[in-house]
């Protein structure tokens, strides 16, 4: 017993994606991604709480008393929220297509996901500029600072997601995305869906719940 040793069981896991050779049987990358997403909950939680605390804090006046909730365009935001929600569908369809080995469909779905994300970001840019036209800028009052910070952080997350999706698209074009790489797409997908669920929360709590 004293010197009983054997070789590592994973002697041939050369491509780093052999999910079944870890102690838990799950892949390192996916575990790291989920750990990161758990961590992100605390990040967005803090930003959302900051906004909730400040949402009715108008400045002392007279020029800075408008708060974002006064000028929300709910129908417009509803449309862009819906667009982001549907991009989660195209994301899973991209993954599903890659699993089947259908590269054409994979690229189509990846591109539509990125484009839906782009539409969402475009909507956000439009929303921000319309706020600015109303005179509600980042430094207007605590409510506006918190609003721009929260939605801006989310927008940066979406934009990074678009960069990742486009990189996958290019990789697929170059023939580097094969069914062996489903996990890479799945992990980008996890990030994308997470950004989507954060917006589900933001859309309800920040936009829809009425402020007295």
């Amino acid at each position: 017993m004293a010197t009983a040793t054997i070789d590592s069981p994973d002697t041939h896991a050369a491509d780093g994606h052999d999910e079944h050779h870890t102690s838990t049987g799950i892949s390192n990358t996916k575990l790291a991604m989920w750990a990161f997403l758990g961590s992100e909950c605390l990040l967005f939680g803090g930003l959302i709480s900051t906004y909730l605390l400040y949402k009715t804090r108008r400045g002392p006046g007279p020029d800075n008393t408008t708060i974002p909730t006064d000028i929300f365009d709910i129908p417009f935001t509803s449309v862009s929220s819906f667009v982001l929600l549907m991009s989660s569908l195209t994301m899973v369809l991209a993954l599903s297509a890659l699993t089947r080995g259908d590269n054409q469909a994979t690229r189509a779905w990846l591109l539509s996901t990125a484009m839906l994300g782009g539409v969402f970001i475009g909507g956000q840019v439009y929303e921000f500029t319309s706020f600015l036209r109303e005179g509600v800028g980042f430094t207007h009052n605590p409510a506006s600072s918190a609003f721009f910070t929260l939605t801006g952080f989310h927008g940066v997350h979406v934009s990074l997601g678009i960069v990742m999706l486009m990189s996958l698209f290019v990789a697929s074009k170059q023939g580097k995305l094969t069914p062996k790489n489903t996990e890479t797409v799945e992990i980008v997908g996890l990030y994308w869906h997470f950004v989507d669920v954060v917006w589900i929360f933001i859309f309800t709590v920040i936009y829809l719940i009425p402020v007295e």
Binding site: E40, C41, L42, H193
Partner: peptide
């Protein structure tokens, strides 16, 4: 569904729900 938590290893759900509960 989209993030596959119902089909995947429990550890993923635990990590994510852990973060959610802590944050809440």
């Amino acid at each position: 569904w989209f993030m596959h938590l119902r089909f995947d290893n429990k550890i993923f759900s635990q990590l994510f729900v852990g973060g959610l509960i802590l944050a809440t």
